[in-house]
Design a protein around this nucleic acid. Structure first.
Lengths: 195, 195
DNA sequence: AGACGATTTTGACCTATGTCAAAGGAAAAT
DNA sequence: ATTTTCCTTTGACATAGGTCAAAATCGTCT
C-alpha cells in the first residue's frame, strides 16, 4: 500500500543519520503524519511558530524569507531525492514566530512530525537525540558553506557551482526561484545563463 | 587560586546551556586544559583537523578563512564576555581538515577540551548531549542570522547593526578585523565611519 | 626618542550587479 | 481557442562597493 512505501523510504532516510533498529524505527514513524499539497501552497507563514518537521517523499519545498524591499530570498530547498528532511529550523528550535516561509514548488507529498512529538522522542530515545544532533550538524555545515559561497564567489561562480554540484536544482526550479536561491536578481540570472 | 576561578567561570557558562548538577560539572571540567597565548597566535591552521573545543576566559579569538584572492573573512568572534564557547565547528564536527583558521586577537587565556573527550562525554553523560545540542542550535541560529544580514543589509546597515547590537566588538577589534567580519574592505569601513 | 612596520584614511577610478521599463513567451484559466 | 497572468529576456542606466596607490597616523621595538 502507498503509505507503506512512504514509511519505508522515511525509515531508510532516518537510518542514514543514526543507527536505529527496527523497533525504534517503528516507534518513530507512528508520529509522522502523511499529507499532500498542491503546488505553491504555503505551509508556514512569517509570524507563525513552526511546529512541524518534514520529510519530503515526493515533490519540492523551499524555505525563504522576504527582505525589507519585498524581495524573496530562498534559504533552503528540499527535494524528494535531496535534502529531504528539514524545516524552518530557527523557529522550530526556538519556538518563536518564524521569519521564514515554507512553500511547495510542485505538487508535494510529505510526512510530518509535530514539534512536541519530536522533542518527546528526544527525551525518550537516545538514538533520536543522536539523529537530531546529526541533523543540526548537517544544517550548520550547510549554512556555513552557503556563507562561504556568498562572501567569496561572484554571481557567475555561484551559478556555475550549482550547475556543477546540484544540476537537478536548475532543471527543476524556475529561474525566479533559482535566482532568489543564488541571491541575485532574475535579470542577472538571465544574463549569466546566456554567457 | 587562579585556575579555580577559570573553572568556576566555565561551570557558570556551561550551566547556561544545560542543567548540569555539581557532580556532572566536576566530571566535565577535568577534561578542560588551561592554556595561555600571546596576541596574534594561530591556534588552528587551514588543512589541520580541529580537535579542540574552546572556552575563552580572557581575551579575544577569531575564526576566519582566506578566500581565493587572499582576503581574510572573519566568521566568528569569541570574547571573554560574549560567545565564549566555540571552535572551528565544521572541522570539529566532521574531523576533516579545516578551511578555517583560529587566531588570538589579544593575549588570551582559554580552557580547551579535546575532541575525543568531548565525544566521550557525549556518550557517557546525557546532559552533555543536551549541552552539545544547544551549542549546535545556537551556532545554527547565529549562522542563519548572518546569512540574513549578508543578503538583506547594505554595508552601512551591517556596520550600524554591529554598532547597536555588539558595540564592544567595535571597541575591541581593529578596523581591519572588523571590516573582514562585516565582509567589506577596510577602505569601505573607513568611509562608512566618517558618514 | 627615533625609526620601522603596520594600520587607517583619502582620492580617483572601475566594475559587477541592481533598477526600471518594456517586449516576448509560456502556462493557466475561462 | 482566447484571454489573462505570470515568467523570462533585453536594453539603458545607476550605484554600492571594490581596486590601486599614496599619504597620514599609530604602535612597537631598539
Amino acid at each position: 500500500m502507498y503509505v507503506k512505501r512512504m514509511i519505508d523510504k522515511l525509515k531508510t532516510v532516518l537510518k542514514i543519520f543514526a543507527d536505529f533498529d527496527e523497533d525504534e524505527l517503528d516507534k518513530i514513524v507512528v508520529y509522522f503524519k502523511q499529507k499532500a499539497f498542491k503546488k505553491n501552497t504555503i505551509l508556514l507563514k512569517e509570524g507563525i511558530i513552526c511546529n512541524k518537521f518534514y520529510f519530503i517523499y515526493k515533490g519540492c519545498v523551499r524555505i525563504f524569507f522576504i527582505d525589507k524591499n519585498g524581495y524573496e530570498k530562498t534559504r533552503y530547498i528540499m527535494l524528494d531525492n535531496h535534502m529531504n528532511l528539514g524545516t524552518a529550523l530557527t523557529s522550530f528550535i526556538s519556538q518563536n514566530p518564524s521569519i521564514e516561509y515554507i512553500e511547495t514548488l510542485e505538487d508535494t507529498e510529505i510526512l510530518a512530525i509535530d514539534h512536541s512529538d519530536f522533542y518527546h522522542l528526544n527525551n525518550e530515545m537516545l538514538n533520536w537525540r543522536l539523529f537530531y544532533q546529526r541533523i543540526l550538524e548537517m544544517a550548520y555545515s550547510f549554512q556555513s558553506s552557503r556563507i562561504e559561497h556568498l562572501v567569496t564567489l561572484t554571481a557567475k561562480q555561484r551559478y556555475n557551482n550549482v550547475l556543477k554540484e546540484s544540476p537537478f536544482l536548475i532543471q527543476r526550479l524556475s529561474n525566479r526561484i533559482l535566482a532568489s536561491y543564488l541571491d541575485i536578481r532574475e535579470e542577472t540570472l538571465s544574463r549569466l545563463k546566456s554567457k
